[in-house]
Amino acid sequence: MSPRRSARTTGERGSATVETALVLPVIVMMLAALLVTALAGVQQLSVTEGARAAARALAIGHSPEQARTIAQRVCQCAADITVSEGAWVQVRVRSTSRSVSWLPGLKVSASVTLPAEPGGSP
């Protein structure tokens, strides 16, 4: 007595492979998008911290060159750093995310404005 195969079993043969082949690329694309978003978020936080540190340095009286150095050191990225002084100091840091540099046009930036400390000196 041999086991009988039903028509349903033989008709669905290989369906799991087809379903996997259809769904797997979608899952991989979603994971890639999640990874790119996470890397860009980390770079954004880094640039924001660099701008904050440079603005604090300017606010207490450091030179713009020192503020640029501080921003570069904190964000650890190749960044375009703009500094303006006056009653309010403003630092803008723009960077192309090096962790996802293969994705064209992904740039992160941060701008921080703080009041200058009266009589501030380093």
Rank of each mutant, 00 (worst) to 15 (best):
A57I: 10
I60C: 03
H62K: 07
V47C: 00
A67K: 04
H62D: 14
G41L: 02
S63D: 05
V74M: 03
A53P: 04
C75E: 09
V74Y: 04
A33K: 12
A78I: 15
L35C: 10
A71K: 03
T48H: 08
L34F: 06
Q72E: 11
A51F: 00
A55R: 07
Q43T: 14
M30I: 14
T37D: 03
R68H: 12
A51K: 01
V36K: 00
D80G: 13
A40F: 00
G41Q: 02
Q66F: 11
R56E: 09
V42F: 13
Q44L: 09
A71Q: 04
Q44S: 15
L58N: 08
S63N: 01
A78Q: 12
L34K: 06
V42Q: 02
L35Y: 06
Q66C: 15
L45D: 13
L45S: 14
V74I: 10
G50L: 03
A55L: 03
Q72I: 09
Q76H: 14
T69A: 12
G41M: 00
L45G: 15
A33S: 11
R68P: 12
G61E: 04
G61N: 02
Q66G: 13
E49G: 08
I70M: 00
A53V: 05
A40K: 01
A57V: 05
V36C: 05
P64G: 02
A78N: 13
Q66Y: 09
T37I: 13
L45E: 14
L34W: 10
Q72L: 13
A67H: 01
R68K: 09
